[in-house]
Design a protein around this nucleic acid. Sequence first.
RNA 1: GGGCGUAUAGCUCAGCUGGUUAGAGCGCUGCGUUCACAUCGCAGAGGUCUCUGGUUCGAGUCCAGAUACGCCCACCA
Length: 888
Amino acid sequence: MSLPKIYNPQEIEDKIYQTWEKSGFFRPNKSTNKNFSIAMPPPNATGELHLGHAVMLAIQDIMVRWQRMKGKAVLWLPGTDHAAIATQNKVEKILLAKTGQTRQAIGRTKFLESVNDFVSNSQHVIRGQVRKIGSSCDWSRERYTLDPGLSTAVKEVFVRMYQDGLIYRGNRIVNWCPRCMSTLADDEVEYKEETAKLYTFAYDKNCPIKISTTRPETKLGDTAIAVNPKDLRYKKFIGQIFNVDFLGQALTLKVIADNAVDIKFGTGALGVTPAHSLADFALAEKHELPVIKVIDENGRIIKGLGEFSELKVIEARKKIVAELKTKKLLISEDQCQHNLSICYRCATPIEPLTSRQWFVDVNKKIKIKNEKLKKTIGKKTASLKKLALGVVKAGEINIIPKRFNKIYFQWMENLRDWCISRQIWFGHPIPVYYCQKSNCQEIIVSRTPVSKCPKCGGTKLKQDPDTLDTWFSSGLWTFSTLGWPSETKNLKIKNKNNGILNDLERFHPTSVMETGYDILFFWVARMILMTTYALGEVPFKTVYLHGLVRDKEGRKMSKSLGNGIDPVKMIKKYGADAVRLSLIIGTTPGNDVRLYEEKIAAYRNFINKIWNIARYIIENEKSKTKNEKPQLKIKNLQHSDQWILYELEKLIKNVNHNLEHYHFSRAGEDIYDFIWHKLADWYIEAAKVEAVPHQQELLDYILKKCLVMLHPFVPFVTEEIWGIMNIEQGAIKNNLLMIEPWVEKIDFKITRAQAQNFVKIQEIITAIRNARAEQKLAPAEIINCLIDSRLENLIDENRGLIEKMAKIKILTKSDELKTFDQINLSHAKIYLEKITKLEPAKDTAQLEKYIQSLEARLNNPDFLAKAPKEVIAKEKTRLEEARARLTQ
RNA sequence: GGGCGUAUAGCUCAGCUGGUUAGAGCGCUGCGUUCACAUCGCAGAGGUCUCUGGUUCGAGUCCAGAUACGCCCACCA
């Protein structure tokens, strides 16, 4: 079998993935107490994967494969998120497009059926795509945020939190999306800057204080006028109550003083609308103002407000402005810039309104049950907020890059109670039942369905129609996926009988959470909050945040711009290995990545290079007979062998160091450089010339080490080559590279001095090549070289090698010059100088400059006095080396 | 209003705790293809590390300030 010249990933990748999956090595079967686990951030079950997913999968797969090769029991748990609102919206859209029906028209049960169909379809697509990129995750443990086990966990946490008084039902202001017909959490609100009209007016003719607003229609619900206590214009009114007639509606307005009011804005007086403004609601709570709701969940003015009743918000606004004008109450209409709040899922403007919802109290103190956690926090009681802050402050969780610590603290410190109920159909039902008996109305919070009211015995019970915020369930992801709470119940029995540990014990806390920084608040923070509460331990020890993938111009990839790159298409065209490298190399944590096709193509070329290096070594091996391959012995090593082994050892050290410190890009670059510019460009080229008996064995040895180190980065091509080598070498069993032990060191001890010989040979060859390029001499030119430098022996000894690699003929002093004609000889003379000096003239000048700077430093008494000894020593050797090179 | 990030070759980016003559990929220029690979090889050009100060024996790296771009949070009456 001869290998094709060009590596074709399309033919190979699927086959390799199947082999891996069938092997069972994706599962953490190894019995060892060294465990490593990652909970894969579950992609939304809404459709296809994008480059963001590809980045996360590539990075996580590197960690996972590396740890697996290091001999740990590795669990990488995949899954999908039901993504409540996002998924419901998408299915609603499809339904409308297909049948023209709304979800209300087909009803809850039927609608949920079609959502589930959509989800299982989408999950199927996602599974395929996650495989395409080479993810070595444990499919046997795949989870879905809505599957039964996770639902149990969700209910369990809800009930416990309720019992601890952390979950309450309250009538509070919420962010309401009139299109989704649901609440949104604070961080699910986005802002869009736009110019709005700022209306300044008086409520009626008798009211002495005028106010400014962009939303006149909400003023129907005003219950106060707020002014700054320092504002002299209004000081006399503070505490007064005005009964005004606002366009036919009677309002009772108390004048309150609050520092939050900006004296310079508008009239300096603020109409307080507690029911429809988050800030005003806070004012109302502080000053104990009544809350009057005037806009309903449909975005219409509520009934009973005269001519404005049931008008849409925009219409009401027009009408009110028009009436203010006719009644001459409107003073001015100004343009103003403001941020419109919009829904992060559908971009509809948010309507803040008061509503009866379920909340998680983040400030209420609870007892800490876990002893270790108590120590970490340093207190016996703490609020959810303080717990989540404390574990990060104590260093229980390490966030990479560090700067996100600060961002996390800021967010967490300012966190308000979390509204967790959503008025959508798709999601985890709220485990709350209401007794329908009018004189009872008991609220029952229960893990299991309730059919009888425990208080009155009534059987007319209704479950809360709402569902939970999707982040409530994804906040439990690291442990709900490992069997909590049911597995913990069996824990003791299992331990006593046979010492077997369950998944939760083995893999929680997970080792690393790798995700994009854009969901630090949505998800990472919530996981920390929920897990420290529920388990008394952190969900993960390290958080690695990657950047967002952008296009070549740095823009976000989006459908509307049409600048998106489809990872699946790229994998098809260039192979998964190339796509992985393009997403890893040249990136740093927390910083955005720009991706474009040329970059992927460049790494495709590298993959092909690896393939051809292997091809050369494999094909070469075949042409040799067994007895041509003697045992490799260290004393037989040539200069080039010593050099490449020395470099290999350096590489191994660097790669290990960089992987340990999450410098994936650096590790990848180092391997790239070694393979291409050391192994291929120099060593193999030299090996072609210096055909010595042990060469094949050494090439084989180096290639195998490289394949091991490359494997986490480019698993497909390396596994394929490994397999071919196994077959060629007559291995009985095809051992998979994916479980080959990781390289920690090499079996040869080479000193730097030994390695230097080949470095010098390289310099000689490069010098000759440079000289040739400058003189534009024909490649087959024969040159004589009068060697009288210290390199004579080295050149003499390696004459054949240098001649072949530099494509010249070296004639030493002793050789006769009879083969030259006059023209060649004149060229040769110019050459001669350069070659014997080793450096072209320009380089010599540079070198001299360098030596001067080194000398200046070493003559500086301050430097000698204050610099560390190692640095001085280093500089001295550098100077010696540089001087030696100059005299050569 | 509060906070954060980035600024290094034509382009995209590395450069770890300050210590070689500042690097890579792509692009560009010249030469080269029987002999692993043209998805290739060899050679080359290209940088006052945004600016101004400071700390230091020594600054791309640390500190302060300025400029430009970007992001997050809050507010938005």
